[in-house]
Design a protein around this nucleic acid. Structure first.
Length: 110
DNA sequence: TCAATGACCCGCA
DNA sequence: TTGCGGGCCATTG
């Protein structure tokens, strides 16, 4: 668990850099890290993020903007509540205007 | 060591 | 439009 400084750490870095009120997708992070189709691993990294309290995993959703991992939070509604607190509208466990709140890691290059 | 699983994504029927 | 299968890499049993 301590030797995941390969890309796990990178995932945490990116997720931690997500601005408040913004959300991103596993695929975007995976693509940014160069894993292209390694989106699965990104989600897995989130699961391990339980050791990292500084990881706003609630800002990470799937490509559809659906809170797929909400069930992994302290409370199923925790994820949606956090997003709402950020000013993001969530309906039926889905983010409204997902593309509008979407945050791309590539913007860091801007 | 091998096999199975996982907070996913894409392509095809 | 909906449903099914394959692929990606790492962790765990």
């Amino acid at each position: 668990m301590q030797n995941r400084d390969n890309f796990f750490d990178l995932v945490y870095q990116v997720v931690r850099l997500i601005p408040k009120g913004r959300v991103t997708s596993y695929g975007a992070i995976a693509n940014y890290l160069g894993l292209k189709s390694g989106a699965r691993m990104v989600g897995y990294a989130m699961n391990a993020s339980h050791s990292q309290a500084d990881i706003p995993a609630h800002r990470v959703v799937n490509r559809n903007g659906v809170l797929t991992g909400k069930h992994h939070f302290p409370h199923p509604e925790f994820m949606q509540q956090q997003l709402e607190l950020e000013g993001i509208e969530v309906k039926n466990d889905k983010i409204l205007d997902f593309e509008k709140h979407f945050w791309n890691p590539n913007e860091l290059n801007n």
